[in-house]
Design a protein around this nucleic acid. Structure first.
Lengths: 121, 121
DNA sequence: GGAATAATTGAACAATTGTTCATATATTAA
DNA sequence: TTAATATATGAACAATTGTTCAATTATTCC
């Protein structure tokens, strides 16, 4: 029998034990902020397009990404900065061309899991 | 040898074949928007806390989530609506108490992949 | 019925976001 | 050196977001 769940003499239905137990397992404020920021980096259509393109082709320059998505180099460059800051992409400069790719296999996994979810909904 | 990559007579370094090939694989505008929205649903610290709490305890009422996180019922209720709209959580109403839980195993997987990424960075 | 509790909702507000446009920096070619 | 190309960046703008506060709805207890 779970405490607090059934009608009882308490003023509220708060399940104190559950609250206590989960509270103990909670991570730091900083952790949740960083986790949220990671998801946020993937939360814009332009950025999901960029990530998808990179997941298909592995390495692309700014100009090509803009051509694929059909927008300006500037918009792509701004978004790549966001992805760079959140360490979702890495880059390799060759002459005046910067080639971008997904940072590591974890990003591929995380993104693939999102793809799978959307494809199945 | 990759076309367009080495110095050539073209005016630009755009790799036309790559662009063409990735363009062909691109999903619809709608798909990328929905994918972005899914990640966006997980892109706020309060919401990552809610999802984390639900991943630890499986079923929690609004009041308990607010107690765990340390904020108001109203703020939690607003955020739960966002999560409900994006089908990340489902609910089960018992009397005047609404119990929330993660919608399906895919949400658990997606969130767990995010956790793993952050824990390893 | 009336009081209390749980949750939801709407309005309002500051804060953040993503794009565009113009400009700047860096590299290459002539 | 000068012109062209590739990318990056700063300012500005509308649009969106997350919280708070107050009010509302729904249910239970007396």
């Amino acid at each position: 029998m779970k405490e607090g769940r059934s009608v009882n003499n308490a003023k509220t239905f708060i399940e104190k034990e559950k609250v206590k137990s989960v509270k103990k397992k909670m991570k730091t404020e900083r952790f949740f902020h960083y986790l949220a920021e990671t998801f946020r980096a993937m939360s814009d259509p332009t950025r999901t397009k960029i990530i998808y393109a990179l997941s298909e082709e592995n390495e692309l320059c700014v100009h090509d990404i803009a051509a694929i998505i059909g927008t300006t180099n500037s918009a792509i460059s701004h978004q790549l900065r966001t992805l760079r800051n959140m360490k979702l992409v890495k880059y390799n400069k060759v002459g005046r061309v910067t080639f971008y790719s997904l940072d590591d296999i974890h990003i591929n996994n995380l993104f693939a899991e999102g793809l799978r979810h959307v494809e199945e909904k």
